[in-house]
């Protein structure tokens, strides 16, 4: 019931966000800071509507987190410090792009491991087939007319 209610709230929020522009805070004087702020609001997950970044979500928590990040960027904090601030409170899940390390290392290494595994399988199959004697009797062409 709780999940369904949350979905409904997210749906409503999504509909409303098309009507009303989000308060993204005053533009920052330093273009580099503005770029950092823009990037972070796209990379930080809104935990209320989990498939929206906070820059897209009209949930009140997303607005609070935008304000918080806006203040931290304006105070000259680095991307690393701000991400640390967020993950200390909400865990790695708050970042769309998980950081390397810990259990997330498996996530990052999985594509390479799967590629190696697939390559090994193909290599074995190809070698086994190459070692097979060529069967000259297995004539799949049309029977010779005589």
């Amino acid at each position: 019931m709780n999940v369904r209610r949350r979905w409904f709230a997210c749906l409503l929020a999504a509909l409303m966000s098309t009507a009303a522009a989000l308060d993204m805070g005053a533009p920052l004087a330093d273009p580099a800071q503005q770029a950092l702020y823009d990037r972070l609001t796209k990379e930080v997950r809104c935990l209320v509507c989990q498939n929206q970044p906070i820059g897209d979500s009209s949930a009140p928590l997303a607005a609070d987190l935008r304000r918080e990040i806006h203040e931290m960027v304006a105070a000259g904090q680095s991307e690393r410090e701000i991400k640390q601030f967020l993950t200390d409170r909400y865990g790695d899940f708050v970042l769309y792009k998980p950081r390397y390390g810990g259990p997330a290392a498996l996530l990052w290494l999985a594509p390479a491991l799967l590629l190696l595994f697939g390559g090994a399988v193909i290599w074995r199959v190809v070698r086994r087939r190459a070692a097979m004697p060529v069967d000259l009797d297995d004539d799949t062409g049309p029977p010779a007319a005589d």
Binding site: V48, L61, D64, E68, Y90
Partner: peptide, 13 residues
Amino acid sequence: EEGRVAIDWGVYG
């Protein structure tokens, strides 16, 4: 009122 303490506590719902 501003939800700042809630952010420190990682509150999301």
